[in-house]
C-alpha cells in the first residue's frame, strides 16, 4: 500500500484532486423518480410502461421499529432511463444487447451536446437534421467516434401535459430525422444518443420511414439510448464525460438510472 501512496501523479489521482478542488464538477442529468412523471403512452390496446410506484414497508413503526424502507415498482423505461439494443426489433439478434451483457466500458464516454433550444422553442416538432449537425460541427469540430451525443432542447423544463404535449394526432416533441441518426450512427460512429424528451425519437417519430428512426438505427447498430435527461444546459458543447450505468437486469432492455457528467470548470 505504501508503494501506491508514494506513486507519482496518475490520471486518476489528478481526477481525484480535480473533483476535490471543484475543478471538475459532477452534474446530475437525472429527473427524480416521481410517480407523476410522464411515461411514453402507447395506444391502449398495447401493454404500457409501468409508472414509478413506491410502497412503504415500514417507517420506524410497528411494521419495523428501527428502520424505514420502501418497495418500488416501475418499468425498464420509466423516468430518466437507458435503452439497450435489445429494446428494439432491429437490435434483437445482436450479441451483448441487454443491459446485463453490454460491456461496462460502453457506459462511459465523451459527450457532445447539440443545442437545439432555439429551434425547439419555435417548433414543438423541431427536427434534428444532418444540416443542424454539420452546422454544429463547423463550430465545435467533428463529433469524435465513440461519443455520446445529446440533443439539448430544454424540454426538461416542461411540466405536466406540456411534456408529452399529447394532441389528438399524438405527441409533439422534437427529435432526429432518419438521415440525422444515420449520419451519427454510420458515419460518426457514436456510442449513443440522448434526449430530454420521453424517447430518443420525435413525438411524431412514428410517421418517419422507418418509424422511430432513432430506435431503429441506434439499436440496430448496437448503440445506446438515453431519454428524459435533465440539466443539459449545464453541459458544455464538448469536453465533458458522460457516465450512464444502467441496473444490471438479467436480459433487461433498459433501466432507470442516474446519469451524471464530469464537467471541467471553465478557466
Amino acid at each position: 500500500m505504501s508503494d501506491q501512496t508514494a506513486a507519482p501523479s496518475s490520471t486518476l489521482s489528478d481526477l481525484a484532486l480535480s473533483l476535490a478542488s471543484g475543478a471538475i464538477q459532477v452534474v446530475d442529468l437525472t429527473h427524480t423518480l416521481d410517480p407523476d412523471f410522464p411515461v411514453i403512452v402507447l395506444p391502449p390496446e398495447f401493454g404500457q410502461c409501468a409508472r414509478f410506484r413506491i410502497e412503504e414497508i415500514s417507517a420506524y413503526d410497528h411494521r419495523g421499529p428501527a428502520w424505514k424502507w420502501h418497495n418500488f415498482t416501475c418499468g425498464e423505461h420509466t423516468g430518466t432511463h437507458f435503452d439497450a439494443p435489445a429494446h428494439w426489433i432491429s437490435g434483437r439478434d445482436l450479441p451483448n444487447n441487454s443491459v446485463d451483457s453490454i460491456p461496462v466500458e460502453q457506459f462511459v464516454g465523451p459527450v457532445c451536446v447539440i443545442d437545439c433550444t432555439e429551434g425547439a422553442a419555435a417548433d414543438d416538432d423541431f427536427e434534428l437534421t444532418p444540416q443542424v449537425i454539420i452546422a454544429w460541427e463547423r463550430q465545435h469540430g467533428e463529433i469524435p467516434a465513440g461519443s455520446w451525443v445529446l440533443m439539448r432542447t430544454d424540454w426538461s423544463a416542461r411540466r405536466g401535459a406540456a411534456y408529452l404535449n399529447m394532441r389528438e394526432d399524438g405527441p409533439h416533441s422534437p427529435g432526429p430525422t432518419p438521415d440525422a441518426i444515420r449520419l451519427l450512427v454510420d458515419e460518426r460512429q457514436i456510442r449513443g444518443f440522448g434526449t430530454e424528451t420521453v424517447g430518443t425519437d420525435a413525438g411524431q417519430g412514428v410517421h418517419y420511414t422507418p418509424p422511430f428512426p432513432a430506435h431503429f438505427y441506434l439499436h440496430g447498430a448496437g448503440r445506446l439510448g438515453l431519454q428524459c435527461l435533465n440539466n443539459l444546459s449545464q453541459l458544455p458543447p464538448t469536453g465533458a464525460i458522460l457516465i450512464a450505468t444502467p441496473l444490471k437486469i438479467k436480459q433487461g432492455t433498459g433501466s432507470p438510472l442516474r446519469v451524471i457528467a464530469l464537467v471541467q470548470e471553465e478557466r
Partner: peptide, 28 residues
C-alpha cells in the same frame, strides 16, 4: 395523470361546483 389529456377533460373542468384534484388510485 394530468399530464395525459383525455376526452372529457375540458367538459369536466368547465362544470360548476366541481373541484378537480390529483388522485391516482394506483399510487398510495
Amino acid at each position: 395523470e394530468s399530464w395525459r389529456p383525455y376526452p372529457g377533460q375540458q367538459a369536466i373542468h368547465a362544470m360548476a361546483n366541481i373541484e378537480v384534484l390529483p388522485l391516482d388510485v394506483t399510487d398510495t
